[in-house]
Amino acid sequence: MHLDQKLTRERFFKILGYALVLPFIYGWISMLKQNRLLHSKTNTLVLPPDLPEGLSFVEPVIISKKSDGIKIFSARCTHLGCMINHIQDGHLICPCHGSEYLSDGSVIKGPSKEPLHELSYTFDKERGVFIVKLV
């Protein structure tokens, strides 16, 4: 709209209509934020204490237990988020696009570039279980 254009009643309501979208966007984002907050409390995974050696899957995580310690990764492929559920020749393989990872989470074959997301966990001594924080 040019500045010298006359602000007619029709144009005024049109602009007002567009402007009303903004509070809706604000409301939409706030609603999503609050909804996520409500469901974030269950975002942990409890694992038994006797995790097996080597690689194992407990959806949605991959456990890699070696002599030097335990690492827990998100089972989602860092390429596009597919759930990795397959081991071949000791490698973790994404079924959707074929990315391959080593047991330490590092990528050995693309298309993925990023290593698997390592998740933090604590050991609850009282209950004798691992508590994994899912992101």
């Binding site: 984002i29 989602r76 596009l80 988020g81 597919c82 079924p95």
Partner: peptide, 29 residues
């Protein structure tokens, strides 16, 4: 279907600023 849902979620979430909200609004939890 489940893998497709995850891929779409991942793609939408990669859109700057609004990606995650857009994905959540379209795909839900």
């Amino acid at each position: 279907s489940l893998q497709a849902q995850r891929i779409l979620d991942s793609l939408l979430s990669s859109i700057p600023l609004v990606g995650k909200s857009l994905s959540y609004s379209i795909l839900g939890r």
